[in-house]
């Protein structure tokens, strides 16, 4: 029995972006914000658990023309519309060729049914520390496009999360798109591994999304993004610093990496796993990423 079926839930379904933005602005002024509804795959879970905080929705399904799909720009960046589903992008060969970790992440969200409805924007906005697509986007330096009746602004994904499940989005703003810039190096430098509770339909217990840039035999630059290791998905800055200049994985460097990681990330025990497991496995994933991204 879903509680949503029996209690007052109001849904408006604008047919143009302008209309949607006006409704958002109106509601925000009245201090009764509308909640955007994309694929609904996060929202329905909340509803089913009886925990819907807000009951006024802005259904985006009428805006597929304006917000759906994706485009590759001349500069080689990928623009993912807010209503673009995982399934849509998973059908794109160029995304697989250039952004393999985003495709790996997308292919591991839920399973086929969820991938047919779920959106990248919804994943980003939902702000779960266990999200799969958002950390891959973060490792790829993605940018969030926010639109309101006042205009558009962009926020780097890196600065988007302000705390546990809270984002930089204002009540009158809609995510219109996410853009992923052209990647500086070869795809070999991208690394993604989700450690879930099972193979599919799994919440990530610990995950690593990374981009490791090598110059000759040393690491020049990195993005090390941790999943389920903190209140939000996040970059591990001490670890990134410790990695810069690294050439080999001897015992001392490995120990140093673990110390740096512990300065960045203090995971928790919960019903899905333990802090000890998360820390140990994240560390092992980082070592695996170094081995696998190194030029041969």
């Amino acid at each position: 029995m879903s509680s949503i079926a029996h209690s007052a839930v109001r849904v408006s379904r604008p047919t143009s972006l302008a209309e949607a933005l006006d409704q958002l602005a109106d509601a925000a002024v009245r201090d009764a914000p509308l909640r955007p509804l994309a694929g609904g795959t996060d929202i329905m879970v909340e509803a089913n658990h009886g925990g819907l905080r807000q009951r006024d929705f802005l259904d985006l399904s009428g805006l597929k023309a304006a917000l759906g799909g994706f485009t590759w720009a001349h500069d080689g960046s990928l623009r993912i519309g807010a209503m673009c589903t995982y399934a849509t992008l998973l059908a794109d060969a160029r995304s697989h060729a250039e952004l393999p970790i985003l495709m790996q992440a997308a292919g591991l969200v839920g399973a086929t049914q969820i991938q047919a409805r779920g959106t990248f924007a919804g994943n980003v906005e939902n702000g779960s520390p266990a999200a799969d697509a958002a950390p891959a986007l973060l490792a790829l330096d993605a940018v969030v496009h926010l639109q309101s009746s006042r205009g558009e602004r962009t926020v780097p994904l890196e600065a988007y999360y302000t705390g546990y499940r809270s984002t930089a989005r204002r009540a009158d703003e809609l995510i219109s798109a996410l853009t992923v810039p052209k990647q500086p190096g070869p795809t070999r430098e991208q690394f993604f591994r989700k450690v879930g509770t099972r193979a599919f339909q799994a919440i990530t217990k610990v995950g690593l999304s990374a981009r490791i840039t090598w110059l000759d035999d040393a690491i020049a630059d990195t993005r090390i993004v941790a999943t389920s290791m903190a209140a939000t998905i996040c970059r591990a800055r001490h670890l990134e610093n410790a990695l810069r200049g690294l050439t080999t994985l001897d015992q001392a460097t490995v120990a140093g990496l673990r110390r740096a990681q512990d300065a960045d990330l203090r995971p928790l025990d919960d019903v899905r796993s333990t802090a000890a497991y998360r820390a140990e496995v994240f560390h092992r994933l980082v070592c695996q990423a170094i081995r696998e991204t190194r030029p041969s």
Partner: peptide
């Protein structure tokens, strides 16, 4: 079913 984990076919 999210946190009491039974196998899927992929497992």
């Amino acid at each position: 079913m999210t946190n009491y984990v039974v196998p899927t076919f992929a497992d």
